[in-house]
């Protein structure tokens, strides 16, 4: 155990007082800049605010007057949230149960593609083998396969296994109840990989080549380089992809509907909220509150990981 671990340059941590964009902004009439950014921020926020305000208004008010009238005629109720959280249906008292399902689905569905894609992206970027560029392009192009078209074959893979020329190559999975989570993880991982490889490859391939060279000269193997050099450098980039994948899985309805089913053993929050909209169509008052219940977690995750997120994307550009 004498191989020296190459030290990671810490240049990225240097504090930069002025950036190019900062200069641009400063030189521009900064009042105009502030004004424009405020206008954009308001335009982007108002629709959500409208929904948020509406979620506290009585059903009849929502349907007959605009949400902005609350400023002149404030009328608020918690009934919509009560209905969504505790519901009229016997099963809705278990919203917490669906919440746990969402967590149980989301966590592995984020971790697996993250790890697999990082390994693959490293191989595609730094291991020399024939056809790697074509392989990368092929994986990249797979992003276009609409997941709707993958539902039936994948479901058949789970429920009947794989048979080639009459020979059962892989058995059916035969999962019941909460075991069905495994199917959902599998499906989400498949669907996430092309984008994950694409994104991580972008960062990993931009790591400084001399760093890798130095390590190779020191006799480090690929797994070692991956673990000791690449992983620490791209951890923030992983956080970035992790957030996107988290948002995608958390908000997904279609994949869960097919592979998890609709019961409270496995169905995530989104499936439940879609049902809440009522069996005969949409009702504003439930939708408004329901939308906010489902937004809360992604929002917390984003806000708490925002720091890593920004740093993560920094790491990709160490080369400058």
């Amino acid at each position: 155990m004498t191989t020296a671990t190459p030290t990671v340059p810490t240049g990225a941590q240097a504090i930069r007082k002025s950036t190019a964009a900062g200069r641009v902004r400063k030189r521009l009439n900064s009042r105009t800049a502030t004004l424009v950014s405020i206008v954009i921020a308001i335009a982007w926020t108002v629709p959500t605010v409208g929904l948020f305000v509406s979620s506290f208004r009585p059903e009849n008010e929502i349907k007959t007057t605009g949400w902005w009238t609350v400023f002149s005629n404030p009328q608020f109720t918690l009934e919509n949230y009560q209905e969504v959280l505790f519901g009229r249906s016997s099963s809705s008292g278990q919203l917490a149960s669906y919440f746990i399902n969402s967590l149980a689905i989301t966590i592995p569905s984020v971790l697996f593609p993250l790890a697999f894609a990082a390994l693959a992206a490293y191989a595609l970027a730094w291991i020399n083998f024939r056809g790697r560029d074509w392989l990368y392009i092929a994986i990249f192009a797979l992003q276009i396969v609409p997941l709707q078209m993958a539902l039936v074959p994948l479901l058949r893979f789970f429920s009947t296994g794989v048979t080639i020329a009459g020979v059962q190559v892989l058995p059916a999975w035969d999962l019941v109840d909460e075991q069905k989570f495994a199917q959902v993880w599998f499906a989400h991982t498949c669907f996430a990989l092309p984008f994950a490889v694409f994104l991580l490859h972008n960062f990993i391939s931009q790591l400084p080549a001399d760093l890798m060279e130095a390590a190779r000269v020191d006799g480090a193997t690929h797994p070692r380089i991956f673990r000791t050099i690449v992983l620490p450098l791209i951890t923030p980039a992983l956080a970035a992809f992790g957030i996107f994948q988290f948002l995608w899985v958390w908000n997904d309805l279609l994949v869960a509907l097919i592979f998890a089913g609709g019961g409270n053993e496995t169905a995530p929050l989104t499936v439940r909220l879609a049902e809440m909209a009522g069996s005969r169509g949409n009702e504003w008052q439930r939708l408004t509150a329901g939308a906010f219940v489902s937004i809360v977690v992604p929002l917390i995750v984003f806000l708490s990981l925002q720091r890593y997120f920004v740093r993560g994307l920094l790491a990709g550009s160490v080369k400058g």
Binding site: V152, P153, L154, L155, S159, L257, G261, G262, E275, S279
Partner: peptide
């Protein structure tokens, strides 16, 4: 009796049947 209701019934039934489930 294990009943499951879905707003996507018409489309999803086909998927489940074709998917062997």
């Amino acid at each position: 009796i294990d009943h499951e209701g879905s707003g996507e019934f018409e489309a999803q039934l086909g998927v489940r049947v074709d998917g062997g489930n």
